[in-house]
């Protein structure tokens, strides 16, 4: 057993952080399900968009695990994956507007996540703010 953490109250898994984790879980599940369908059923229609869809799904799963798992390493993984999401949703969002033939196929990131009520755009911003105000104390 590790030593009890006096900062448990401020952990990134406490309070509203649990909502963050729950929403990430839902989004990871949604992205995974959709990506699985796209890869199996219609990959040839838009290989670039659907590959990105799969990458997004994997990143969401990784970010969800990193938010839940304790320790400084997972904290860094959470930061990196959530930054990757923010850059991904912004890049693919712009590309889906200017190169629709390649990117307009429905994926979790196209049109800034409009198909998911813009949650994919809002979530990494919230996530990064949350991580900033809830740093890892003392390491793992």
């Amino acid at each position: 057993m590790s030593t009890p953490t006096p900062t448990a109250v401020k952990s990134r898994r406490s309070g509203a952080g649990r909502i963050l984790i729950a929403v990430y879980l839902v989004l990871a599940l949604a992205a995974l399900g959709r990506s699985f369908y796209q890869l199996v059923a219609k990959f040839d229609q838009a290989p670039v968009a659907y590959t990105l869809s799969a990458v997004a799904a994997v990143v969401y799963i990784l970010a969800t695990i990193a938010l839940i798992a304790p320790g400084a390493t997972w904290y860094r993984v959470a930061r990196v994956t959530i930054w990757f999401e923010l850059i991904g949703v912004l890049t693919v969002g712009v590309l889906s507007l200017i190169v629709p033939s390649m990117f307009a196929h429905p994926s979790v990131w196209s049109y800034f996540g409009l198909g998911y009520l813009l949650i994919p755009l809002a979530l990494p911003i919230w996530g990064l703010l949350w991580l900033r105000t809830h740093p890892e104390h003392g390491g793992a």
């Binding site: 309070g15 509203a16 649990r18 909502i19 729950a22 929403v23 879980l25 839902v26 599940l29």
Partner: peptide
Amino acid sequence: IFLPIGAGFWALIDRSRWSTIILGVA
């Protein structure tokens, strides 16, 4: 099918108000 069941188990383990919100989100 997994969402409400998962949220339900979450609410059984974590008896905080955040679990109530998670039930709603699911």
